[in-house]
Amino acid sequence: MRDDRHRWTPYDGAWSPYEVGGIAITPVTPERQILISAPAVLSRHPGAIGWPDIATGDSYAISLRRDRVLLVNGPDMAEGWDDEIGQAVSDVTDAYSVFDLTGPKALELLKHGTEIGLQQPSRSAARMLFGLGVFLYRHGAEDRFRLHVLRAQGQTAWQMLTGQAGRL
């Protein structure tokens, strides 16, 4: 039985934007994130974003797997198994924390966390970064990277990203 409360920086999920030379890290709160799994789901979402694709606009689909996409700010959908279309639908809005990494040093920061480069494309936005599972792509600009990380690992991701950004 250990009381380790003082060993861990308190976490409340409300991070203030962090900025340091050449990079800004900002929490983002999408209104809705929906997971859709189905056979050939990618052909129904032909523009689904992989790496290092640039998502544009507010609403878009991210390619995660051969048979799975994440719809960001898409329409509200009934959860569960949709027998008509043949797809599994789950609301994951609260399951992922989302951060934007912007600036000329953002890519260098990502290179601290994994073997990644704009010349190494991938059909999937899902990868490991600093040992954490994330969805990583660009959003709206060449040097603006967006990542989704599981909510319970949001604090770890935040501490890692801001800590490493401060050392660039």
Binding site: R2, D4, R5, P10, Y11, D12, D94, L150, R151
Partner: peptide, 21 residues
């Protein structure tokens, strides 16, 4: 060895919780 964090952690801390892995 980062731990997963509860959504309710602030409320547990406010309730004087002893936190551990």
């Amino acid at each position: 060895h980062p731990l997963k964090r509860l959504a309710l952690e602030p409320l547990h801390r406010a309730a004087d919780a002893a936190l551990g892995e």
